[in-house]
Amino acid sequence: MATDAALRRLLRLHRTEIAVAVDSAFPLLHALADHDVVPEDKFQETLHLKEKEGCPQAFHALLSWLLTQDSTAILDFWRVLFKDYNLERYGRLQPILDSFPKDVDLSQPRKGRKPPAVPKALVPPPRLPTKRKASEEARAAAPAALTPRGTASPGSQLKAKPPKKPESSAEQQRLPLGNGIQTMSASVQRAVAMSSGDVPGARGAVEGILIQQVFESGGSKKCIQVGGEFYTPSKFEDSGSGKNKARSSSGPKPLVRAKGAQGAAPGGGEARLGQQGSVPAPLALPSDPQLHQKNEDECAVCRDGGELICCDGCPRAFHLACLSPPLREIPSGTWRCSSCLQATVQEVQPRAEEPRPQEPPVETPLPPGLRSAGEEVRGPPGEPLAGMDTTLVYKHLPAPPSAAPLPGLDSSALHPLLCVGPEGQQNLAPGARCGVCGDGTDVLRCTHCAAAFHWRCHFPAGTSRPGTGLRCRSCSGDVTPAPVEGVLAPSPARLAPGPAKDDTASHEPALH
């Protein structure tokens, strides 16, 4: 009773807030009518008042009428009001819900409408889902798969039609296919003929059939049928067999079959498995989609049935006599038709004709302190090069084509190399640097090759510096006499390219 009084008091307290929050009759008014909170006449009256005075006034009048009803109607109103779709449509209802007392429970059932309790003993237990329907569909599909699609060729003596089998029958139906081979029951999904010589313990000319048996419980189990008994694959494991010639990621696949039913060829011909030897223990289905393919039931050349050999690369099948050149017997292992072999060759040939990528240039590290003349020119003028003790990398590039010797140069053309002071002394051009340390401070000019250098860098042994005729380390061993002091540049003949010694390969005349 306390809860009923509290709900009535809360409705009177929030009546105006609810009326202002509800700006549309749908969905709240319609939901109240659906849950029998508002009768039909009051529903029509509220809609009429909404058209006349507006939605807030109409709902305020409806809530005032609701306060005169019993506690069950008020409880049902609060339940409908706080439904998710009403809270989404009328956003101003959320503060009312947040301020609702926590001790007021809106989930209690309506009085007088409590459903009768059902004894637990009368409640049926839930049924577990079964796979009976899938099993029945598999039974119905198996006879259809064994139905012949056409008439065999005159040369083929193997013609068999499976008798119709009602689904209610649980007995196995067997077809006489000759040579002791028996087909599987209607619940078998796949059958492959297997030679009895590969099964340990088999006697006589009995041949087993590799099947997948579907049981009534819905589970499946792969086994071997020899005669009327089934054997699990673990009985046929043979770890010492060295003649297993397995197909790549293979499961067994029928390579020879008669049109209309699988079996042995007439005249004692023995149908073979995809792999010879003992049956392997793992009978998992292969991951290669080509091995799941269903080959055609007629020859791809003459479009006739009979004894066919199936290609492992495509769905086509052929007569042995229709092949070019014809085959006398079934080859062992994987067999592919000429079209598949030709496609494989065409895929391999473009790969062989692809040009080989060019090898990157060989990189040879230079000892610290040495650099090529090109690196000396590329440096920024007026700045010493940083990191001189790091190992430089010199790339061996292809030799350029031989060019004509340089033409003779006048001494005026070499004027930018040297600057003559007032006393006739050779001065260095701006930006000249030593080729060893890279520093341009207090550098000297070689009178023979006009290269800038430090005496301490080229002659670290402490050799005394002569007063005139300074030469760098590369030119100090040259027998050519030094030019007379005061000459602007060496003779043009000295600039012609010539053979250089091994220790002077990195010091070429550089223009500054």
Rank of each mutant, 00 (worst) to 15 (best):
D4A: 05
A5I: 13
A5W: 08
L7M: 04
R8Q: 00
L10N: 01
R12P: 02
V20K: 00
L29W: 03
L32M: 01
V37D: 04
E40K: 00
D41C: 14
E51S: 00
K52V: 14
E53G: 01
G54R: 00
C55H: 02
Q57K: 12
L66F: 01
A73T: 10
L81Y: 02
K83M: 00
Y85T: 04
N86E: 00
L87G: 04
E88C: 04
Y90E: 00
G91A: 03
G91Y: 15
L93E: 04
Q94D: 03
I96G: 00
L97M: 07
P101V: 00
V104L: 08
L106E: 02
L106T: 09
P115A: 07
V118N: 07
K120T: 15
K120C: 13
A121H: 02
A121S: 13
P125C: 09
P126S: 02
T130Y: 11
K131Q: 01
A134V: 14
E137P: 12
E137L: 07
A141C: 09
A142V: 13
P143D: 10
R149Y: 03
R149F: 08
R149L: 13
T151C: 09
S153Q: 05
P154G: 07
P154L: 14
G155D: 03
S156W: 15
Q157S: 11
L158C: 05
K159P: 04
A160Q: 01
K161C: 15
K165V: 09
P166V: 09
S169A: 07
S169P: 15
A170K: 15
E171W: 15
E171A: 15
Q172Y: 15
R174H: 07
R174Q: 03
L175G: 05
L175T: 09
L177Q: 06
L177A: 08
N179C: 13
N179D: 04
T183G: 06
M184R: 09
M184S: 04
V188H: 06
V188L: 13
V192Q: 07
V192N: 03
D198W: 00
V199P: 06
G201W: 04
A202G: 07
R203E: 01
E207G: 11
E207P: 04
Q212S: 12
V214E: 04
V214I: 06
S217A: 04
S217P: 05
G219D: 08
K222M: 01
G227K: 03
G228V: 04
F230G: 05
E237T: 09
S239A: 13
G240K: 11
G240H: 02
S241K: 03
S241D: 12
G242V: 10
K243G: 10
N244Q: 13
A246Q: 01
R247C: 11
S249M: 13
P252T: 09
P252G: 02
P254D: 05
L255N: 05
K259E: 06
G267T: 15
E270P: 15
E270L: 14
R272C: 14
R272W: 08
